[in-house]
Structures are given as structure tokens and as C-alpha cells.
Amino acid sequence: MSPIIEDELFKKENFSRSPLPIGNYESCSFEQCDFSNGNLSGIVFNECEFIDCNLSNATLKNTTLNDVTFSGCKLLGLNFKSVSTFLMRFNFTNCNLQMAQFDFLKLKQTLFINCELQQATFNETDLSQAVFDECNLLETQFFNSNLEGAHFQTAYNFIIDPELNKMKGAKFSSSDLEGLLQKYKLQID
């Protein structure tokens, strides 16, 4: 049985050199920690927060992320599609999520606030009521995803094909309609 670690603060730890021990982390905070290229497989994070951490290219196989917040984190190339989907819920603020993969996940009401999401993939992802506030979606891929009720009013650099995604009730700014119509090669002034 995995140990339970509760209410701990981990600050400026380098877990890419010596891995975080497998366990159940409850209400823990990780500040300025380096997990880059590390292995977080099988670890349970419940109601934890990651602040100014580097998790780029970390392995998340069967990692549980329940009620986890990421703030100011670098999450380049992270493959979220391999996490445990049981009780999965997380949000991002001021994070760099370039080339992250969110394919096949249920991410209803997930918050992406002021995030860099260039070249991320959301293939067959349920993003209903998700919020993309002030997010850069340059070359981000949305394919066969549920975007119903999602908020894109302040997102930018996106290209989303309404014919390839469910989009009923999705919210966009009128100034960004070009990103929805690009495949038609219309001239919009």
C-alpha cells in the first residue's frame, strides 16, 4: 500500500534527479520544483497545487490528478492522455502547455487561463464548458471534440473547423470569426 503524504510543502526540490516517491499526496503544495523528464507514473495527487514548477516531458502513466491546480508551470510536451481518468480534474493558470496532448480525455469545465497552448492536441476530447481565457492556440489541433458551451471569447490564434467538432453554444468574439472560417478562404474585413 502506498504511503499517504498530507499537507506537505515541497519547495525548490529537483525530482528529475531523484524521483518523487510513489504515494498518495493529499493537499500538498509543490513550489518551484523540477520534475522535467521525470517519472510521476502511478502517483496520486489529490487537491494538490503546483506553482512555478517544471513538469516538461514528465511521464504521467496512470498518474491521478484529482482537483489539481497548475499555476505558472512549464508543462511542455506533457502527455495527459496517459493519466488515470478516475476522478480526473485539473486547471491551469499562466502555464506553458506547448505541444501537450489532451486526446480522448473528458475535460468538462476545465479552466485554461492565460496559457500558451501552441501545437497542443485536443483530439476526441470533451471540452464542454471549458474556458480558454487569454490563451494562445496557435497550431493547436481540435478534431472530433466536444466544444459545446466552451468559452473562446479571449482566446487567439486558433483555427477550429466547426464541421469537425461539436460546437453548439460555444462562445467566440466576433473579431475572431476568421479562425472558424479559415478553410473556406473567405475575405473577412
Rank of each mutant, 00 (worst) to 15 (best):
K61G: 00
D67Y: 12
V131S: 14
Q187Y: 03
E26G: 01
I159K: 14
G149A: 06
E49L: 03
S174R: 10
T64W: 00
L55P: 01
L181P: 06
F112M: 11
N66P: 02
K183Q: 15
F122V: 10
Q109N: 15
P162W: 10
N39A: 04
G169Y: 10
I188L: 14
E178R: 13
S36C: 11
A130L: 11
E178H: 14
G42K: 00
T121G: 06
Q98G: 05
D52I: 02
A130Q: 13
K168D: 12
A58M: 00
T140S: 15
V44M: 03
L75I: 10
T125R: 14
L97W: 01
A130G: 10
Y25V: 05
I43V: 10
N94T: 07
N91V: 06
N165V: 13
F92V: 10
N57C: 03
C28R: 09
D34H: 08
E124C: 13
K168Y: 11
N136S: 15
N39C: 02
A170G: 09
N123V: 15
F15P: 01
F86L: 13
N157C: 08
K166A: 15
L127V: 12
L107C: 11
K74S: 07
L117V: 09
I188W: 04
D103N: 15
Q98F: 01
K74Q: 06
D103F: 01
K74D: 03
E26P: 00
A120C: 15
D133M: 11
L138H: 14
I43M: 04
S173H: 13
E116K: 10
G169P: 09
R89N: 13
L105V: 07
C73V: 03
R17I: 12
E134I: 11
L177D: 06
P19M: 06
Q32R: 14
G23N: 10
A170I: 09
F80H: 00
I43A: 01
L60H: 00
L137S: 12
S173R: 12
M167K: 06
T125N: 12
C48Q: 05
F122H: 09
Y184W: 14
E134W: 07
K61W: 01
A150V: 02
S16D: 05
P3F: 05
F102L: 02
Y156C: 08
F86H: 13
C28K: 12
N165E: 13
T121M: 13
E47N: 14
N114W: 05
Q98P: 00
C95Y: 06
E8A: 07
M1G: 12
N165S: 12
V44T: 04
E8N: 07
A150S: 11
F132G: 11
N14C: 08
N24K: 15
F80R: 03
F142I: 10
S128G: 09
C115N: 11
L20I: 07
K74H: 02
L180W: 09
S27R: 15
Q182T: 09
S174Y: 07
G169L: 10
A155Q: 06
G23V: 08
S41P: 04
F80G: 02
S2T: 08
S2H: 03
S16A: 07
L97E: 00
G179K: 11
F122M: 11
D161Q: 12
P21I: 07
E178T: 13
D34N: 15
K185H: 08
L138F: 15
L9N: 10
Q32V: 06
